[in-house]
Amino acid sequence: MKATLKRTACVALGLLALAAPASAHHSASMFDRTKPTTLTGVVKAFNWVNPHCSIIFVADGTGETWNVESTSPGVLTRSGWTKRSLNPGDKIEITLAPIRTGGPAGLSLEIKNVTTGETLKRAV
């Protein structure tokens, strides 16, 4: 009985850890700004949400799905972006700081929406 309780507690704690929300304002040092990388691709989703917007796109050539972080909707709004600045299906050219652990993720530095001709970067 005791062992079962212990096991149940462990499982419960494990689930809690998995479910624990992680969002917060964080440093961007997990991204390597010394290696800016420019890629082209097609937007899959543009998440216009606090505290960090994100751009999901499929890279040309490799076909990999990239998950790229940006800053908050407030900061981007003051830089001239809107929730419509990127739309699923738009072709983009994106310069990003890749995540240090490797893989298709990074921090957005500048995006050219080839479909609309708009260049998007943080302006304030």
């Binding site: 998995l18 969002s23 304002h25 964080h26 997990m30 949400v49 960090h52 972080e69 993720a105």
Partner: peptide, 27 residues
Amino acid sequence: RGDYEEGVDKDGYATFVAGPERVNGGV
């Protein structure tokens, strides 16, 4: 908000559902 994604509850009402766990609070 960033911890959740848009979804609907069992009765079809708009709500937020838990999204994937993130690296260090990021996306």
